[in-house]
């Protein structure tokens, strides 16, 4: 939903970042306003996942230039946990398995950290179980997964559902979903995208990172951005995704900005 007067939630300006001294992002510009769904598409290695990790504050990535403002605040100055507490959420491409840590406890500790930041009361185990059972329905997840270790032995689809369950509990202001569609069969894709649609509202924004059009059949983006060589080369509406689907990415290499970069 595009509303030109909606408040800006995330403003990325000329962002440069590197990992292990290898520059990956070469000046990304992107603005997310409340109510908007953005899709970032691009080939492997274009910098899409790096962008998501930099925004979430992964310690392996170094910002070498530019700025990111989250509701006017300097996001890059905050620890990853603080970014999450004020409403930034990263859905992982490969959710991490954590043996021995109960999924239910993990979800409760995370939810309470976010609530506390918002000045809300912490939930005890009983109140939290009520909440989590309600949210499970968003992703049609079996409550048995709450009793297991975080993501341990979950199938690809179950891991992604668990990500969306976390999103449902944390009610982020800006959700970045990194290849949430990868590894999903048709049913899981339907459930996961249904969850994302359910959670997207006029007061939050969603950034979808994906390779494929099929996710965008289920979640309609307001903007589609094409990323290559660490920059956003082109921005358009959802029809741009269809164009990519038909033409592939080869044409990207002929773009003047790319020729300039390589």
């Amino acid at each position: 939903m595009i509303r030109p007067d909606a408040p800006v939630l995330l403003e990325i300006r000329d962002l440069h970042a590197s990992v292990a001294d290898q520059p990956i992002l070469h000046g990304v510009n992107l603005t997310l306003r409340a109510g908007e769904i953005h899709a970032v598409m691009g080939r492997n290695g274009s910098g899409k996942s790096t962008l998501s990790k930099v925004l979430a504050g992964h310690p392996a990535y170094t910002v070498t230039g530019g700025s990111v403002r989250y509701r006017g605040e300097d996001l890059l100055a905050l620890d990853p946990e603080q970014r999450a507490r004020i409403g930034l959420f990263l859905g992982f491409q490969y959710p991490v398995e954590i043996p021995g840590v109960s999924n239910l406890e993990f979800l409760r500790v995370a939810t309470n950290a976010r609530r506390q930041e918002g000045g809300e009361e912490e939930l005890d185990t009983f109140a939290f179980e009520d909440l989590v059972n309600e949210k499970l329905q968003v992703v049609q997840m079996d409550p048995a997964f709450l009793e297991r270790s975080v993501n341990e032995g979950f199938s690809g689809g179950e891991k992604k559902r668990n990500e969306i369950l976390q999103m449902a509990l944390l009610e982020p202001v800006v959700a970045i979903l990194d290849e949430t569609d990868s590894g999903l069969d048709i049913d899981a894709l339907r459930i996961v995208s249904g969850g994302v649609n359910h959670l997207a509202g006029p007061d939050n924004a969603t950034l979808l990172i994906t390779h494929y059009q099929r996710l965008l059949d289920a979640i309609t983006p307001d903007y589609v951005h094409v990323m290559a060589h660490g920059r956003i080369l082109r921005t358009g509406g959802k029809e741009l995704a269809l164009e990519l689907e038909q033409r592939g990415y080869d044409w990207v290499d002929a773009e003047p900005a790319v020729l300039e970069a390589v």
């Binding site: 979430a56 504050g57 992964h58 310690p59 392996a60 620890d79 990853p80 946990e81 970014r83 999450a84 507490r85 990263l90 992982f92 959710p95 991490v96 954590i98 043996p99 021995g100 840590v101 406890e105 993990f106 500790v109 995370a110 950290a113 976010r114 930041e117 270790s149 975080v150 976390q166 944390l170």
Partner: peptide, 25 residues
Amino acid sequence: EDELFYLRSRGIGAAEAARLLLRGY
């Protein structure tokens, strides 16, 4: 590192995340 970051990315502080991982271990 990836386990720590995953927990931190959910709002769990670094010390608490380390404690959870240790207990899980």
